[in-house]
């Protein structure tokens, strides 16, 4: 995970250039901006709006519609709990609740020390290994409630 940089116009500009300032690529542009900063900074949204010649309201409506986007800074480690059907029947709810208890945050929230952000996802397509927890892109399959604490503790 990258350290969170201060938004600079230059990075967003190069993302906009990569997509030839095509307004149809708004979702992809926002994804790349988020990959850069870990969230969507207000300044960058304004810059995207200008760069693609799309009203700021539309940029916001897209940024708030899709689950993948966050308007708030997120933690150093992103935890994704899969809540797909296959994970659900194998006890994903218990896993989510255990993480909530351990970190004292709800899905979509970040711990006060900005160490973890917890999110949920509706299926990552690795159903054979459910329940699954993904931390910073690394999959942990066949989770059990008592494995949650050691897993979280293995990150610093």
């Amino acid at each position: 995970m990258k350290a969170r940089d201060k938004p600079t116009g230059q990075k967003v500009k190069s993302i906009l250039d990569r997509y030839q300032r095509d307004s149809g690529m708004l979702v992809s542009v926002l994804q790349d901006v988020q990959a850069e900063y870990n969230y969507l900074p207000k300044k960058s949204l304004a810059q995207v709006s200008q760069g693609l010649d799309v009203p700021l309201t539309q940029v916001y409506s897209v940024a708030t519609f899709f689950k993948a986007f966050s308007l708030k800074p997120r933690g150093r480690h992103i935890i994704n709990v899969c809540l797909g059907t296959a994970c659900h029947v194998r006890g994903a709810v218990g896993i989510r609740e255990e993480i909530e208890r351990e970190l004292d945050i709800k899905p979509g929230e970040t711990t006060k020390d900005f160490k973890y952000t917890m999110e949920t996802v509706n299926c990552v397509g690795a159903c054979a290994l459910g329940p699954i927890v993904i931390i910073d892109g690394k999959y942990s399959g066949q989770m059990k409630t008592d494995k949650v604490k050691p897993l979280l503790e293995s990150y610093d």
């Binding site: 149809g24 708004l26 979702v27 539309q58 519609f65 899709f66 689950k67 993948a68 509706n122």
Partner: peptide
């Protein structure tokens, strides 16, 4: 790339998303 919305599997929603809309 999609943005994590189930409804975008629906053809008209998918196309709206391709146009850079909700």
């Amino acid at each position: 790339r999609g943005g994590g919305a189930f409804v975008c599997g629906e053809s008209t929603a998918l196309m709206a998303s391709l146009e850079g809309k909700v």
